[in-house]
């Protein structure tokens, strides 16, 4: 306990409520409200409608949503596989190598997503590697952006993991492959799921690189939301954002449930 008197505690809570409400809670509430607003000229919407949400799950918007889901799933799966692979392989490498790997794999965090997009444009716009104009360049960009998180989460989990378990398994006569499949990976499941959650959330909301790279047939939902905002369709944009958040949430809850089951064992 830091504050002992009831009066100062109440004052503190009041300040907390005002600041948190104005700075964080109110903006979050706005998007939800706008998604179902029919007309909005006063403090609160004058009427409510589900029309924008319906628009957001049909036609172009629906196509965009599906693109986002596919991009998110592929990129996060690839990031988790690649990141976990690197983290596990780096464990048994000599210390200097491990340090280099660690630095290189964390580095994309420090590079703005727009620059990731630009660099892929520069590198893959001409043969022999012509990816520009295909959906692959978007997928690659998302992979590069979320990979550090896949690697970081798994690597941190390995730091905390008890090395004795793998040693015991080996002492019982299990081959390295068996130790990996039956002991190390199952123990890592919660971390893998956490890494996938983080990667999925980031990929679903990515704009910077995508807006530099997207081909007409692979437009993710955030890019569509920007287009809608640009056209002045702010309510549709809100509805699309709500759909995006909903899809992300479904993914996170699914992964969370998997994590819960893995942790129970």
């Amino acid at each position: 306990m830091l504050v002992w008197t009831r009066r100062s505690r109440l004052l503190l809570w009041l300040a907390f409520g005002v600041l948190f409400g104005v700075v964080i809670a109110a903006p979050l509430a706005m998007v939800g409200l706008a998604a179902v607003a029919g007309t909005w000229n006063g403090v609160l919407p004058a009427e409510y409608t589900t029309g924008h949400l319906a628009d957001a799950v049909s036609g172009d918007a629906l196509a965009s949503a599906l693109v986002s889901v596919q991009t998110g799933l592929i990129a996060s799966l690839a990031a988790v596989v690649c990141g976990a692979w690197a983290a596990l392989a780096a464990r048994s490498a000599p210390a200097p190598v491990r340090r280099v790997v660690d630095t290189v794999l964390h580095l994309p965090v420090a590079v703005p997503s727009v620059v990731v997009g630009l660099s892929l444009l520069v590198a893959f716009s001409q043969p022999p590697f012509l990816l520009n104009g295909t959906r692959w360049i978007v997928l690659v960009a998302h992979l590069v952006i979320v990979l550090p998180f896949g690697y970081g989460v798994v690597s941190a989990a390995l730091d905390r993991a008890d090395p004795v378990l793998a040693d015991v398994a080996a002492s019982l006569g299990a081959s390295p492959a068996r130790v990996l499949l039956r002991v190390r990976l199952p123990l890592l499941l919660p971390a893998l799921s956490a890494a996938a959650s983080l990667a999925l959330a980031l990929s679903m909301g990515e704009v910077g690189a995508t807006i530099m790279l997207y081909p007409p047939d692979w437009r993710t939902l955030p890019v569509s939301v920007f287009a809608q905002t640009d056209r002045g369709e702010v309510f549709l944009a809100s509805a699309s954002t709500a759909v995006l958040l909903g899809l992300t949430l479904v993914g996170l809850l699914t992964l969370g449930a998997a994590r819960g089951r893995a942790a129970e064992r």
Binding site: C82, G83, A89, L107, P108, S119, L147
Partner: peptide
């Protein structure tokens, strides 16, 4: 050598899709 070989696939991904493009940006 085994650990280094195992490290090759993920490192190829990072080098090819991140480091190499970034180097091209500097060159450009």
């Amino acid at each position: 050598w085994a650990p280094l070989l195992w490290l090759a696939p993920p490192m190829l991904v990072v080098l090819g899709f991140f480091c190499y493009p970034l180097a091209l940006v500097v060159r450009q």
